[in-house]
Design a protein around this nucleic acid. Structure first.
Lengths: 205, 205
DNA sequence: TTCGTCATGTAATGGGTTACATGATTAC
DNA sequence: GTAATCATGTAACCCATTACATGACGAA
């Protein structure tokens, strides 16, 4: 047993700190941007989490009582900059590679996706496909329930369900595009121009 | 002071029981269908909630030890059917009429919307408009953040944010349609026929 | 000088899930 | 008879929010 219920927060923190060291306040903003659409979080959550990661040796702190900084601008306000330790990096790698059923859920998927840039291509594909089949199950369930109850329910409830259904359908289409583009990339990795403006050159991944 | 943090669950339970008395298990399925897209919940949450509502006198229980049923076999399986008391109905009315800023959030909005069929027209409009402005604020925030960080971030993160943004934009369009249709209805209740295909008979409320 | 925002935390509280525990009924 | 699902609950735990508490910096 002993499966880690990990907490996506720790994952997200490790992922962000791997990109670049940061202090808590900044981290919190990044996090709210990163997970923004999925979920927000507050200081009451973040700081205890940082303490925990620190006590587990996954991150290291560095105090900035900025005497050191020649900057006259921001003198000594106490900032604590965190960075990943070797153990932290190892741990992050383990988390990145996880792609079990738990990883198809909303939160988990969101965080995993956010760090796809650091994830192996085969894992990316597995997660995208898992997510898709997860959503398809959900669709089936809701459609069945809807068909059963449809005529017996007021139109607002119905409208709510219809809208929910369409949201899920839309995400499935999104996933289809992403999966196609992942496959295209894995089939022929010869080139993939980063242009990223808008439209549909998902090949840039 | 004394603002109720109410818990949307209690609201949803009262709302469902107002439509028709039910026992816990059935309630749980209805609830998961009703809030389905928004959130699921488990027995560990529901039963304690029912007990609480009962102890507050908002709902009444009725045991079904199905001797009554034609089946003479064993003492029937114990089902507990719940129905709203007078106090419960009163309480539900209070909740239905609430339309403060808290009511524009995801969960709150979902539950309120699900019971729009029992909500006064002016309140419906207030909630829809509040929700919309809530989402518009969110859009602005995300867009700003996106503009600030856009070029400094890998394309997966960007794609995630773009998709999130589009989801919100889509919900705003949905709300626009609903608001328009509510206004049409309030302006001239004689008829509000228009496209919106299956959604248009809001007059039935 | 006052206000906004940067910056870090703690304590109380709440809401929820998971796993556990039990047993009846229905369909195969 | 056996599996699925109906049906009800409890206890342990986890994660997160809210409100509280503190304080320094930059700009108006």
């Amino acid at each position: 047993m002993g499966r880690n219920r990990t907490g996506m927060l720790e994952f997200a923190v490790l992922g962000l700190l791997h990109r670049t060291p940061m202090h808590g306040y900044e981290l919190s903003k990044q996090l709210n941007l990163l997970l923004g659409t999925f979920r927000a979080l507050s200081y009451g959550t973040l700081y205890p989490c940082l303490n925990k990661l620190y006590s587990e040796g996954l991150i290291a702190r560095e105090d900035y009582n900025a005497q050191a900084s020649a900057r006259p601008g921001r003198a000594g306000r106490s900032k604590i900059v965190y960075r990943l330790t070797a153990e932290g990096k190892e741990r992050l790698q383990d988390l990145l590679v996880e792609s079990g059923p738990g990883e198809w859920e909303d939160d988990e998927f969101g965080v995993h996706f956010a760090f796809f840039g650091q994830t192996r291509a085969d894992i990316r594909l597995r997660i995208l496909e898992g997510r898709r089949s997860r959503l398809e199950d959900r669709l089936e369930g809701v459609r069945a329930a809807l068909a059963r109850t449809a005529e017996r329910v007021d139109s607002y409830t119905l409208e709510l369900q219809r809208h929910g259904l369409e949201s899920v359908e839309r995400e499935v289409r999104w996933l289809n595009e992403l999966i196609a583009s992942e496959r295209r990339f894995q089939a022929g990795p010869q080139m993939a121009e980063s242009h990223t403006d808008r439209g549909s050159e998902k090949e840039s991944f």
